[in-house]
Design a protein around this nucleic acid. Sequence first.
DNA 1: CAGTATCCTGTCCGATACTG
DNA 2: CAGTATCGGACAGGATACTG
Lengths: 167, 167
Amino acid sequence: MKHKSFGNMQCPIARSLERVGEWWSILILRDAFNGLKRFDEFQTNLGIAPAMLTRRLKALVDAGLLEKHRYSEHPPRDEYLLTPRGRDFQPVLIALMAWGNAHFTPEGKSVIVVDTRTGREAEPVMVDRASGLPLSDPVFRKMPGPAADERTRRRHGGRPATREQRQ
Amino acid sequence: MKHKSFGNMQCPIARSLERVGEWWSILILRDAFNGLKRFDEFQTNLGIAPAMLTRRLKALVDAGLLEKHRYSEHPPRDEYLLTPRGRDFQPVLIALMAWGNAHFTPEGKSVIVVDTRTGREAEPVMVDRASGLPLSDPVFRKMPGPAADERTRRRHGGRPATREQRQ
DNA sequence: CAGTATCCTGTCCGATACTG
DNA sequence: CAGTATCGGACAGGATACTG
């Protein structure tokens, strides 16, 4: 499934999934954001088979999300650190967390984001940076970008805004 | 893999992945947001095998993200519509799109979000609704929530904020 | 501690053919 | 059109044993 070709490979969502589509990848990134760095930390916290962990870590390194950093020469020891690209993944994790908290935690939230200045729980929302408006607002629409090919253009640009277009 | 038990199943991210962890699920949701509703529309646009599409659609319906809606009795015809829970998934898609656009589209962006009032491209950011601050700001930290169990508490609450805690 | 080496199973997924 | 029925391959992932 490494280089599977989804319907439209121009789509940035599909391209993202090529890198983090496997179950464990996102959980490893989550743990990396929580400060885990060493093989053994991941292994223990995730309960993942070591061979699988090796494969997933390698894939994440190859995709440029993590980088191996040697912190000891004798014996040779590496730790796995988030790259800038890996750190940019944070909004996806937050969005998944918020969605999970909202819909799949009948007992209540187990993990939240907190504003450490006020102690208040943060409420994650996706907004447009310039206007501050939530992107769920109907004024926002997906459109073909500058590099859109013919197919993408047809998919996103061709039709007028119909009721099912957004929301 | 249906009911696999990840390391910590309290984690809302892991719970989310239980519902949308498969490759096709997220692409189907993306298409649903783009207005696709009928089996054949998904099939054609994704290039997915029909049997697989049936399984994924069923899984999404079972998870409460889509619902079958009969729009014709003779012959019986169903369409798949986003439920409120499915619509709440939008931020995840936007986050994946933004990340893909930023890192995996050397030719430029193929799909963007546009403010239809101004025609300007939106820049998606995750913020705290109350303060409007980006959640990447170091004042925000993940913490155990009200329903956190002992293990989650140890993972998130136990340690003081170290340099690797956030970022 | 940080992996590698094997073996095995489940299932995701593609391809093709068929049905009301 | 909206699926169901099979078949088969690839690989994610588990389990266990082993190494520098």
